[in-house]
Simulated assay, not measured.
Amino acid sequence: MAPNGETLIASYPRNKVDVPQRPRRISMEGLQRAISDLSFQLGKEAVETALPPISEVEDAKCECCGMSEECTPEYIGRVREKFSGKWICGLCSEAVKEEMVKNGGKQHKALEAHMSVCVRFNRIGRTHPVLYQADAMRELLRKSSRAERGQSSSPRDREGVKKKGGIARSSSCIPAITKEIDKCKSLTDRLKP
């Protein structure tokens, strides 16, 4: 509204005669009718779209890693059917698929390989993570030494392996540390009055 109480003419759309139109007032009766029509439509749609019954869920425990999931009995049955009667979680099923690619598509062997890795991890890795990491490093070294043994044994090839790098064996650092400590002690002894 303008300061003198009149409405601004530019704020309303103009008709062909260029006469300002006043905004339509909504009556309370019309508003109540619109609300009741809307509620009727919403109630009608709710009746028409009945939801299917939800089947009960069960806890299923993965036979590889031991993780539990809530699943329907139908889903549990499909997974057991797919993996030789064993129920495995989604993460383990992906790992089995990857193992199948490595093993040439044999699902039974892939499942056994993944289960043995999970059993080993659950036995050692969860209780003693440092030992598990050391064991994994030992396996890496064992595999790399097998790969070196598979190559020819000519001296020329051995030099190439040394140049490529690898884990070199070194002596212990404890004698160097004790030597430094002894030097520090002798300096402090000299400085004492």
Score class of each variant (00 low, 15 high):
G125Q: 07
G125I: 04
G125H: 03
G125D: 00
G125N: 04
R126M: 08
R126A: 04
R126S: 02
R126L: 02
T127F: 13
T127Y: 15
H128Y: 13
P129T: 06
P129R: 13
P129L: 01
P129H: 03
P129V: 05
V130H: 11
V130G: 02
V130W: 04
L131Q: 10
L131T: 07
Y132D: 01
Y132A: 13
Y132P: 01
Y132N: 05
Q133A: 14
Q133M: 09
Q133P: 00
Q133C: 10
A134S: 11
A134D: 14
A134K: 07
D135L: 06
D135H: 08
D135T: 09
A136V: 03
A136S: 07
A136C: 01
A136H: 06
M137R: 14
M137Q: 13
M137E: 09
M137I: 11
M137V: 05
R138A: 12
E139C: 06
E139P: 00
E139N: 13
E139D: 11
L140H: 15
L140I: 08
L140R: 12
L141C: 13
L141K: 10
R142G: 11
R142W: 13
K143V: 06
K143T: 04
K143Q: 09
K143R: 12
S144E: 12
S144Q: 14
S145L: 14
S145V: 08
S145D: 15
S145M: 10
R146H: 07
R146I: 02
A147V: 03
A147Q: 08
A147P: 01
A147R: 05
A147Y: 02
A147D: 08
E148F: 02
E148K: 11
R149Q: 12
G150W: 12
G150R: 13
Q151W: 00
Q151P: 01
Q151M: 00
S152D: 05
S152E: 08
S152M: 10
S152P: 05
S153F: 10
S153N: 15
S154A: 09
P155A: 07
P155W: 02
P155F: 02
R156P: 11
R156I: 06
D157S: 05
D157C: 00
D157A: 01
D157F: 00
E159P: 04
E159H: 10
E159Q: 07
E159L: 05
G160H: 06
G160L: 01
V161S: 06
V161I: 03
K162T: 01
K162A: 01
K162C: 04
K162G: 02
K162P: 00
K162I: 01
K163E: 06
K163A: 12
K163R: 08
K164N: 03
K164H: 14
K164G: 00
G165S: 07
G166H: 00
G166C: 00
G166S: 01
I167W: 00
I167F: 03
A168S: 11
A168F: 07
R169S: 08
R169L: 15
S170A: 15
S170I: 10
S170L: 11
S171P: 06
S172I: 09
S172E: 03
C173T: 13
C173Y: 15
C173L: 14
I174W: 12
I174V: 15
I174M: 09
I174Y: 15
I174H: 11
I174T: 11
I174A: 08
P175W: 00
P175F: 03
P175Q: 08
A176Q: 11
I177H: 07
T178E: 14
T178I: 07
T178L: 09
T178K: 13
K179W: 09
K179G: 05
K179T: 10
